[in-house]
């Protein structure tokens, strides 16, 4: 822990489309600066359509038009090298992927080739990056699967012969077989039932801790974040609204949106009805002026309607972007 492994600065990534001469811009990632340390589990939370997956695509360097990085930078710090992730050549991508940077996709149900046995898919992925014979890659695969507690017969199966949870575990193994330093996981537990979810979370933890890899975890499920993440960033409508260590964000959320998000979680002893956040997230082709959350915010003031709040520090490693919080802070007596 300590050294940053990936950093973004004022990152803006928009979907720019043009249909019949009408240009449409969707500001899916707007002015996001984050710094993720090596060996840390960094959670990115937020509801659907808030730009989580877009941010991940840009971080991963895997995006194509209409998604365009308009401004800002993404930098990897790997083996004392500084790599600009926005302008990667195909060769650079090939050499980075899987060996250094890997990806566990959303909806792993269909990422395994249905007409190929699991062991052949592993061989395809391994031999793309390592100069190995089939025998060697088979040995790597079977010992890795055994370490992760997956049965040996998985190797000779076709994807449709495996359960959803098993397929997800196989995909995690496939993504991490070459021990990448940086692992991105996009909704790894969505679409799995709770029991299977626990197994998958356990496995992600194991994989991450084994070599001290960095795991960037994207999910809307705060429960999963609480289980895994060291730090959590909350996105709303393409903006970073709050970032803090997991314990802090769950115990003392500052931003009204984060408060809603945490309050909507069921607690063990709570029997009362959970409240939901009023309204729905804004469309990002015409985002609201000022603070993007003001339309749904019960504390909104005049200033929130016009001025975009700045990121302010509210504690150790804790920052948020909210006028209301900023005002409270300025009224507090200085100690």
């Amino acid at each position: 822990m300590g050294q940053p492994i990936i950093q973004t600065e004022n990152l803006k990534a928009y979907y720019i489309t043009q249909a019949y001469g009408v240009e449409r811009t969707v500001q899916a990632v707007d002015d996001i600066s984050i710094s993720i340390n090596a060996g840390e589990v960094y959670g990115i939370a937020g509801e659907s359509g808030c730009g989580k997956s877009t941010l991940l695509k840009v971080l991963l360097g895997s995006y194509e038009p209409p998604l365009t990085v308009v401004d800002g930078s993404v930098t990897y710090h790997l083996d004392d090298q500084t790599i600009d992730a926005v302008n990667l050549t195909p060769e650079e991508k090939r050499s980075l992927r899987w060996k250094d940077i890997s990806y566990i996709p959303q909806g792993s149900m269909h990422v395994l080739n249905p007409v190929r046995k699991i062991r052949d898919t592993f061989h395809d992925f391994i031999s793309a990056h390592r100069n190995v014979t089939r025998k060697e890659s088979m040995k790597m695969t079977s010992s890795y699967l055994r370490d992760l507690g997956l049965p040996d017969k998985v190797m000779g199966s076709y994807p449709h012969q495996l359960s959803g949870g098993m397929r997800q575990r196989v995909t995690i193994a496939l993504a991490t077989i070459l021990w990448p330093k940086l692992i991105f996981a996009d909704e790894p537990t969505t679409a799995l039932d709770v029991i299977v979810q626990r197994g998958v979370i356990q496995m992600l933890k194991e994989v991450q801790q084994r070599e001290g890899s960095t795991l960037i975890l994207i999910t809307h499920d705060i429960g999963v974040h609480a289980n895994l993440a060291d730090r959590i960033a909350v996105l709303y409508a393409g903006k970073l609204v709050e970032e803090a260590p997991t314990r802090t964000i769950i115990n003392e959320p500052k931003h009204p949106y984060t408060k809603f998000l945490i309050e909507s979680l069921p607690s063990l002893d709570g029997r009362e009805e959970r409240s939901s956040i009023p309204g729905r997230p804004p469309a990002l082709d015409h985002p609201p002026s000022g603070c993007r959350f003001h339309e749904r915010c019960p504390l909104a003031k005049d200033i929130c309607l016009t001025i975009d709040p700045e990121m302010i520090s509210v504690g150790p490693n804790h920052r948020t972007a909210c006028h209301v919080v900023a005002e409270e802070l300025s009224h507090e007596p200085a100690i």
């Binding site: 991963l60 991508k93 996709p105 080739n113 249905p114």
Partner: peptide, 28 residues
């Protein structure tokens, strides 16, 4: 556009392999 082709692309599996074992094989 299928997930498995996109994923293999992302993992930089050689194009020739993707063409024959991921695309053509699935249209057989």
């Amino acid at each position: 556009t299928s997930d498995y082709v996109q994923y293999a692309e992302l993992a930089a599996v050689p194009k020739r392999k993707i063409l024959f074992f991921y695309i053509i094989r699935n249209t057989m």
